[in-house]
Nucleic acid binder design. Sequence first.
DNA 1: GTGCCTACTTCCCGATGGAAAGTGGCTCTT
DNA 2: AAGAGCCACTTTCCATCGGGAAGTAGGCAC
Lengths: 145, 145
Amino acid sequence: MTTMRAAQRQAQARADYNAFLAACPSRQLLDRISDKWVVLILCALGGDASPQPGGSDGPRAMRYSELARLLAGVSQKMLTQTLRSLERDGLLTRTVTPTVPVTVTYELTDLGLSLHRTTREIRYWAQAHMSEVLTHRDDYDAATS
Amino acid sequence: MTTMRAAQRQAQARADYNAFLAACPSRQLLDRISDKWVVLILCALGGDASPQPGGSDGPRAMRYSELARLLAGVSQKMLTQTLRSLERDGLLTRTVTPTVPVTVTYELTDLGLSLHRTTREIRYWAQAHMSEVLTHRDDYDAATS
DNA sequence: GTGCCTACTTCCCGATGGAAAGTGGCTCTT
DNA sequence: AAGAGCCACTTTCCATCGGGAAGTAGGCAC
């Protein structure tokens, strides 16, 4: 029953959802995931901590403080907020272990992993084409100055 | 000469750029492209106007007003601003044709096209997994209410 | 002239994100 | 028993950002 409902929804999705329409739910979802902290959190939990494409050790659970350290510059407020919304959307799980002091770990779900395949490409693209972009910026600024 | 310099920069890129570091230029670039309007503009110019993955007619130049209509909900201010920054970064070109009234068209460059491959995946992901996300949201809200 | 067209640009204001300080629960020290 | 410390937040305050609406520029038609 659940499976059928999911299959039906999927079929409906392919037919109805269009992120170009402002009122479409998929547009809000696109807005949500087109966010720097979302991309970086998915990359972090996906195991892309090292700079090179080949440097991934696969997805792994991470502690809150570990994420805060890796995503240099994120405020605690945004980190918590973003993690909560990703948890609500089913992209990751939040696990509280009653050690002392308490340990909270975050881990990608299968759904989160499927999006990670794309967000990792965004990061790699930014790193791989940085120099090209820098050159274009120089040209543009020189031409418009 | 130009080619060698590009190759050198590329080599340096792979060695040095890491988007997890707040001060790294690639981090700012990641911030820039992890933006809903950037994703939608690239999708629009990449020819993804129809909702289905198979519905692309390939990249094409579009007028300002055409983009404004397709990206429902974008303000003129943000559209202009985002297009300018994408032009500066070399992802698209802006062409003014002195018709009457004036015609301004935007078209992806090769660099823009290479990023479009990824942004289109983001849109498809949002549309394909919308129902799953909706289910998770219901579950989460039911559990935390 | 007046109006109309496209493609912006400017102004104002409410929403959003960052910095920093505060909270709570538990344990270890003195 | 009273601090002190640690982790994971939560709250407060303020600056910046983005949206809505109105204004601008330049050219032609009437």
